[in-house]
């Protein structure tokens, strides 16, 4: 199904992603909130370095899928594997048991996330927002972390804001800091959960540019939940369309956007074309 998705971006990983062992595997994952089943038996693999865009109407379960991978929600059933290890479970004597905090933290260290509401720490400067976790959690020496964070903040165009506080920045700037903060940890998989939805329209572009720039580097897998269809088309290797808790259709951006097969995807794309 996926044809020439990588060409478009000229990513450094040239080999087709499906030949690599997946970095993330969802296997028959379901999630219910009370009586409401928001995800139904989801199977989804993400290859190392692969950029996957999740699209679909709100309430389709995209965000919940990402949140389970970030361990913010617990799956009701099914298993998730990250880098070959079970995320929510541990194997003890051949049986699956719920993972403890230590196991969760170890497996979670492969994953980073950027949120819709930025969630910067308001009591810390921009620089401290970016260095606190690498120093405390990963034990990287302070000098090195500061260098890494400063480079990254410069790259997202905020090299002059190191000592500013989040409340002094615009939404777009805050979101760029949030991206830098997550990238400094160098996760293998990065989740972007509707990162431009809270932004004023004129600030959306600057944030998307930063993500495209990161995507071009290629070595970090990305799961991008977005309503920006042009952006998804441009940045993704694969587009996954979800609706009502199911993966309805997936494939290369070209296939999904220009040649949708299911009626649901067709009407979803039509609605976006009409600017709804």
């Amino acid at each position: 199904m996926r044809i020439d998705a990588t060409e478009k971006l000229q990513t450094t990983t040239v080999q087709p992603h499906e030949q690599l062992k997946p970095i993330v595997r969802f296997m028959r994952v379901s999630k219910s909130f009370g009586d409401l089943e928001v995800l139904k038996q989801i199977d989804l693999d993400i290859a190392p370095g692969e950029k996957v865009a999740l699209i679909g109407p709100s309430g389709s379960g995209k965000t919940t899928l990402a949140r389970m991978l970030m361990t913010l929600e617990k799956p009701t059933s099914g298993v998730i594997e990250v880098n070959g290890e079970l995320l929510w479970h541990k194997e003890v004597n051949g049986k699956l048991v719920p993972a403890d905090q230590k196991h969760l933290r170890r497996v979670r260290s492969n994953i980073g996330m950027v949120f819709q509401q930025y969630n910067l720490f308001p009591h810390m400067t921009i620089l401290r927002n970016c260095i606190e976790a690498p120093i405390l959690v990963q034990g990287i020496p302070k000098d090195e972390t500061i260098k890494r964070a400063t480079d990254m903040l410069e790259r997202v165009g905020l090299g002059d804001k190191l000592d500013a506080y989040p409340s002094q920045l615009s939404g777009g700037q805050q979101q760029r800091v949030a991206i830098a903060r997550a990238v400094v940890m160098r996760p293998k998989v990065m989740l972007f959960d509707e990162v431009t939805s809270a932004l004023d329209p004129e600030l959306v572009g600057e944030v998307l540019e930063v993500i495209k720039d990161l995507a071009r580097e290629g070595d970090m897998a990305m799961m991008i939940i977005t309503h920006e269809m042009d952006f998804a088309y441009e940045v993704a290797d694969r587009v996954v369309f979800m609706d009502q808790g199911y993966i309805v259709e997936q494939g290369s951006p070209k296939a999904v956007f220009e040649n949708p097969k299911t009626e649901r995807l067709k009407s979803f794309i039509r609605r976006f074309r009409n600017g709804v």
Partner: peptide, 21 residues
């Protein structure tokens, strides 16, 4: 805000680090 707890989880802080920092 709940988002502060979630950001702490995403940055892989321990429980204690989340409380203190």
């Amino acid at each position: 805000p709940k988002g502060q707890w979630e950001a702490s989880t995403a940055l892989n802080f321990s429980k204690t680090q989340t409380w203190i920092k």
